[in-house]
């Protein structure tokens, strides 16, 4: 028999008591400070982990590798391919302007590196607590499952933003060190000032971070399904890989508009003039829809589930 039998049933094992009247009463005055405390401990949990530091450090290395490769090993000749290069974006612009390293690094990290780290954090969010045996204690405290889920989701989203900004900041530093800075050419061939380009870079970083929201929700849902964190992480990263494969099959083009990765590259539209907003808004809407569906699924699952660990 498991040790859970010794636990009181109320509030832990039975979802019916999850949102007790006591919870509802404390909704007013005490809610905010408690939520803040819960959020603070969640952020501490996420960001004080050596693993998180390692992942952020790894992400910070992406612009370094990219910058060094372009600065010292990029021969101008390969740029003549123009149309048929295709593997790397912004390569030819980076050598002329360091700020483009920010865009190039985000473009390089968005398809796989960023989702991988988000998958680890999101997959670990609930399953990690369950695995460590701490989930039931979190629920013994009168926090409520829904609120716990919201805090966990907020923690993952904070990581998405932190990961994106880490890449952007690292790329900015490396770009400024290795390449000339100056007026930034847009994709349309017009040039804008550094100041305006910096604003656009901030918008692009936010856009990239927002692109990860859907995946964060998927990871959160997967994380509620299991008590084995590694399984949740692997599944979430697997979702990214499967999606990438589906995207690569032209015969499935009817499916593509429904994939959460479909409009990921829309952040590039911020580098045009005038800025076409259609695809950007479609991306944000898609991320919101995925967050709503999988967030609700995670909520349903967590509230149905027997928390035994």
């Amino acid at each position: 028999m498991s040790p859970t039998d010794a636990l009181p049933k109320t509030g832990v094992l039975s979802p019916a008591f999850g949102h007790s009247t006591a919870d509802a009463e404390s909704f007013g005055a005490e809610r905010l400070p408690r939520l803040r405390g819960l959020m603070r401990s969640e952020l501490r949990l996420v960001f004080l982990r050596p693993r998180t530091a390692a992942m952020l450090g790894f992400l910070a290395l992406v612009p370094v590798l990219l910058g060094v490769a372009l600065r010292y090993f990029h021969d101008g000749g390969s740029s003549r391919g123009g149309g048929d290069g295709g593997t790397m974006d912004f390569v030819n612009q980076v050598t002329g302007n360091g700020l483009f390293l920010v865009f190039a690094s985000l473009a390089a990290a968005l398809p796989f590196f960023l989702p991988m780290t988000v998958g680890v954090v999101a997959g670990d969010s609930i399953a990690g607590e369950a695995h460590g045996g701490t989930l039931r204690y979190l629920l013994v405290a009168p926090a409520g499952r829904t609120r716990l889920l919201l805090v966990k989701f907020a923690g993952v989203l904070t990581f998405c933003l932190a990961a994106t900004l880490t890449i952007a900041m690292s790329a900015l530093a490396v770009g400024a060190a290795l390449f000339p800075m100056g007026d930034v050419p847009l994709l349309t061939g017009d040039s804008i000032s550094m100041v305006e380009a910096s604003w656009r870079a901030v918008l692009i970083a936010l856009c990239v971070a927002a692109s990860l929201v859907g995946l964060a929700a998927i990871g959160l849902f997967v994380s509620t399904l299991t008590t084995v964190p590694v399984a949740a992480m692997a599944t979430t990263v697997g979702v990214v890989i499967v999606t990438a494969i589906l995207t690569g099959i032209p015969q499935l083009s009817g499916l593509h508009p429904w994939l959460f990765t479909d409009a990921w590259m829309s952040f590039g539209d911020l580098l045009r003039d005038p800025i076409p907003t259609g695809e950007i808004l479609r991306n944000l809407g898609m991320q919101a829809a995925y967050a709503a569906v999988f967030g609700a699924a995670a909520w349903a699952r967590l509230n149905e589930r027997d928390i035994t660990t």
């Binding site: 740029s79 003549r80 391919g81 123009g82 149309g83 290069g85 295709g86 974006d89 912004f90 030819n92 612009q93 002329g96 865009f103 473009a107 050419p185 994709l187 349309t188 061939g189 590259m265 590039g268 539209d269 580098l271 045009r272 076409p276």
Partner: peptide, 24 residues
């Protein structure tokens, strides 16, 4: 417009410019 790149043709009077952002 393509993902992360654009090909521009600008015609202004006697001048015709093309700009391929991928090849810069």
């Amino acid at each position: 417009m393509a993902d992360l790149s654009e090909y521009n043709v600008v015609h202004n009077g006697r001048d015709v410019w093309t700009y391929d952002s991928r090849a810069h």
